[in-house]
Structure formats: C-alpha cells, structure tokens
C-alpha cells in the first residue's frame, strides 16, 4: 500500500505550528458570535418592531448564504464598493465572516436559554429592589449561560472547523499548511490525514474542557 505512516507523523508537528492562527481566528470569531448573537437576541425580544424586523432579516440572510460565498463577498466584494476595505487583511475578513454567520444561529440558542430561566426569578429580583441589569448579571445570565453552554460549545467546534475555509482568502492556517505540504510531496493522503488528526485532537481536548465546565455548572442542580 502506498501509505507512508512515518511521513504522516513527521508532518503533524509542522502542521501543529499553525494551531495558534486557527485558534486565534476561532476564538475571535466566537467572541464576535456571542456579542452579535446576544444583540440579536435582545433585538428580537424588543418592543420596538423595527429592531425586531432588522434582527429577523439578519438571521434569515446569514443562515441562508454559504460560508464560502459570504467570505468572498466580504473579502473580494466589499472593497469594490468601499475602498477602505482594501486595507482589511484576510484574517480580519475571515473572523468577521465566521462571526456574523454563527451569530445568526447563536441568537436562537441564546433565546431558548433565556426563556428556560423561569420568569419568577426575574420578578423576585425586581421585587427585592434590583434593577433589570443587576437581575440579568447576578441571576438570569449565569443560569442562561449554563443552559446555552452545550449548544454554544457545538458552535465553537463548528468555528474551529470552518476556519479551514480561510485558506481560500490566502490565510495560512492548519489546512493551508497541510495543502502546501501535500503539493510539495504529492503525498495527499498523508498530509490531509495528518491535518484531520490535528483537528480531531483539538476538538477532543476542547470537548473535555467543556464537559469539566458543564459538570461544575451542574452542581446547583444535582439532587
């Protein structure tokens, strides 16, 4: 069989050197996802119809278009309309693209998470003299966070994997490095299997950390 396992293992450390850029994009995109996702959640529960409407259109649009189309639209399309965007580097464009799209999905997760905290606890906060902001900070968000964690974790895993699309904008991350190694040696299977194993390891480690956090947050709810 034409498979050089030694070569594959020798590639892994080289590919791993690009873990930082992959995680950098994934984490920044995740932060953007959470900020915009929360914003959309609040807009959708707002009494102002116009905010509600904007959020609905946003979610509908970003859920519908393919990630790749969106990345090209931002990186290659926007500079044509607004020259200032020619200065935007590929990593920034990728992070914005990933974050904007995942926010549309995350807002649904967050909405369900807030709804699952019963209304009575908010009333108890208000009746006790807290402001709404204090109630969210101290009581509602901590519980909604726990409710949202499993699904939000899946979003983060999606983001880690989606960063591989950034190679289409010229960003050298895990996948781009594997691709370059492959075209150097023409050992495609080894290179792509090596990068697949690296992604797998990252997601396994992340999932382990998340389950630790989930256990910690479960504590008040165990009988």
């Amino acid at each position: 069989m034409n498979f050089d396992i030694g070569y594959m293992f020798s590639l892994i450390p080289e590919i791993m050197e690009y873990i930082p850029i992959t995680l950098f994009m994934a984490i920044l995109a995740m932060i953007l996802t959470i900020i915009i996702g929360l914003l959309l959640t609040f807009m959708r529960s707002s009494k102002l119809k116009v905010l509600n409407y904007i959020a609905t259109v946003y979610i509908s649009f970003f859920r519908a278009i393919p990630m790749l189309v969106q990345l090209f639209l931002i990186y290659y399309g926007l500079p044509q309309l607004f020259p200032v965007f020619t200065k935007m580097d590929a990593v920034t464009a990728a992070v914005i693209g990933f974050g904007f799209k995942q926010a549309a999905f995350a807002s649904e997760i967050f909405r369900a998470a807030f709804l699952s905290v019963d209304k009575g606890q908010m009333e108890a906060c208000l009746a006790g003299g807290m402001t709404k902001v204090q109630a969210y900070q101290r009581v509602i968000i901590p519980q909604a966070f726990r409710n949202a964690l499993p699904a939000t974790g899946n979003t983060f895993i999606s983001l880690i994997k989606e960063t591989s699309l950034a190679f289409t904008l010229g960003v050298v991350e895990l996948f781009a490095e594997a691709k370059m190694q492959a075209s150097n040696t023409l050992r495609f299977f080894e290179a792509y299997l090596a990068v697949a194993l690296v992604y797998w390891a990252i997601v396994v480690i992340y999932s382990f950390l998340q389950s630790k956090l989930e256990r910690l947050l479960e504590k008040p709810y165990r009988t």
């Binding site: 019963d118 009575g120 606890q121 009333e123 108890a124 009746a127 006790g128 009581v139 901590p142 519980q143 726990r146 008040p220 709810y221």
Partner: peptide
C-alpha cells in the same frame, strides 16, 4: 419584600 406562590428562589444559589 414579596413571598411568591412558587417561591421563586434563585436556582443557581
């Protein structure tokens, strides 16, 4: 201060 029918304790505390 209010005491509610459904107690409304803070469940994470």
């Amino acid at each position: 201060a209010m005491v509610f029918q459904n107690y409304n304790l803070f469940k994470n505390k």
